[in-house]
Design a protein around this nucleic acid. Structure first.
Length: 465
DNA sequence: TATGTCTGCCC
DNA sequence: ATTCTGC
DNA sequence: GCAGAATGGGCAGACATA
């Protein structure tokens, strides 16, 4: 039964029918798990790393081979190939596995620190690069055959090769035989020489009308790392050497979509802070600071790279005081607390009502979740209060009277197609990007917390920075 | 044809 | 993406 | 110090339904 292949008009019905047939043949226990698969609720309790442990056990009866197998997986994300190689050639074959153009490498990720000082204390002399708010891409180029082959992988290693036809020619023009590099693709407005906000960049089509999107939303691709060049893996080379090799490959040309990320050497916290504010002035997200001698560790998130984001440094903080309007039951561990997230809103004085601005599902400890659940149950009501304006798809499992005020931090205020804060017949509402709980505001009544008017002011203000 | 609902993916 | 938690 | 598991807004795309 191949449900995935069934598509087009009537396909949902056909899939349901096939599933029905299958369930009818199964014993109750099997049926339970099949249903969980379909609902996406099958909780296996393991991920790709568990599979790697299992392969080690298969080979030697313990997990002593884990590091070697994991490394092979990191440079060649194809668990089927890893398993096959191990089975056929043993651990020797695994050790000899190499980077292959067309098979993605697990990307390295950055840690986060709150201040420039923390970063310089940690790294000492280091380099800083602008942090752009676009798509991270891993680019594979092979020009050894009759026709160049080029592939793009997303941060989560999805193949997005068809999405960026406008980047193909500039990359193929790079003077190499084979290449794996990484960059950030971001929408760019040539008229104003500014980058587009993420919400615009993400409008890039994925399947249809791609060519038109490419002219409507031209992209720039800023390369920031080089992992493989002309048959040689570069992962073990220090950052600075990789950077300089990469630099030689990208010709500086303002009009080329293919660009090379800037980099500034940093020795003091003050320097980093100044550079950070420069980047903020340019409307960027912040900076990524890199350890100069760090090798590229695929699949790792560690302090070789550290990001410093806009709202971290003092006065630019976007913190708003919101009324809690209801909560959702949640899944997994959160289900045991009986709450997984909650709905917050701000007061609209003109309409004398609360309008939603975000759901919040992070920022509370386990203990704090349980406390919140108790608090909210004391404020629970059976129906949506008449002075709450909320889109149907955001209706919480339990409504509460708007009487608890909390502090919510966000990276950005965005225009929202769903949230109702500030929404009118002609205008979209506002929402919070990356909302998280920071604490309660016992001293404020919900009506005296942040208002829709103030939210609007904050939105206008952030545009100009 | 237009709109609503849902999924998968980006951050 | 952010955050918390267990190892 | 790191991996894993909770959770967010919002986009395009696929289908169903009206």
């Amino acid at each position: 039964m191949n449900l995935e292949k069934i598509e087009g008009t009537g396909s949902q019905e056909e899939k349901a029918g096939k599933l029905f047939e299958l369930l009818a043949q199964l014993d109750p226990i099997s049926a339970k798990y099949v249903v969980r698969i379909v609902l996406g609720k099958l909780r296996l309790g393991f991920s790709d790393m568990t599979v790697i442990d299992a392969l080690s056990w298969m080979e030697v009866g313990d997990k002593s081979l884990r590091a070697k197998i994991e490394h092979a997986y990191n440079i060649s994300v194809d668990s089927g190939l890893i398993a096959k190689t191990l089975k056929e050639g043993g651990i020797k074959a695994i050790e000899q596995m190499h980077i292959t153009i067309g098979i993605p490498i697990r990307p390295a990720a950055a840690e986060r620190l709150p201040t420039a000082k923390d970063i310089v204390d940690k790294l000492g002399k280091c380099v800083a690069q602008p942090k752009l708010d676009g798509f991270r891409l891993q680019i594979h180029l092979d020009k050894t055959g009759p026709r160049p082959k080029i592939r793009f992988f997303s941060r989560n290693l999805k193949d997005m090769s068809d999405m960026f036809p406008d980047l193909v020619a500039p990359i193929e023009a790079v003077d190499v035989q084979t290449l794996i590099c990484e960059g950030e693709a971001i929408g760019y407005d040539a008229n104003t020489d500014t980058f587009l906000p993420f919400q615009e960049t993400v409008k890039r089509k994925r399947k249809h009308g791609i060519e038109q999107a490419a002219t409507e939303f031209p992209l720039k691709l800023f390369l920031f790392d080089l992992l493989y060049l002309n048959g040689e893996p570069l992962l073990d080379m220090p950052h600075e050497q990789r950077y300089h090799l990469l630099k030689k490959l990208v010709k500086h040309d303002q009009n080329n979509p293919l660009q090379f990320i800037a980099e500034k050497e940093i020795t003091t916290a003050k320097q980093l802070e100044e550079y950070f504010y420069e980047m903020i002035e340019e409307g960027l997200e912040g900076v990524v600071v890199k350890r100069m001698n760090a090798i590229y560790q695929p699949g790792k998130r560690n302090f070789n790279w550290i990001k410093l984001k806009r709202q971290e440094e003092g006065e630019l903080e976007d913190t708003i005081d919101c009324a809690i309007l209801g909560y959702y039951y949640g899944a997994g561990k959160r289900a045991t607390f009986g709450i997984g997230a909650f709905l917050v809103g701000v007061f609209n004085k003109g309409h004398d009502r609360f309008e939603t601005v975000a759901k919040v599902g992070t920022g509370l400890s386990d203990v704090a979740w349980k406390e919140l659940r108790t608090k909210l149950d004391a404020a629970a009501v059976t129906h949506k209060p008449v002075n709450v304006e909320c889109a149907k798809e955001l209706y919480p499992d339990v409504w509460t009277a708007p009487e608890i005020v909390c502090i919510i931090r966000a990276d950005e205020i965005t225009k929202s197609p769903t949230h109702t804060a500030g929404k009118t017949a002609h205008e979209l509402g506002y929402a919070l990007r990356f909302p998280r709980f920071m604490g309660y505001r016992e001293d404020k009544s919900p009506e005296d917390a942040t208002t829709v008017f103030e939210l609007k002011e904050m939105f206008e203000h952030q545009k100009s920075r």
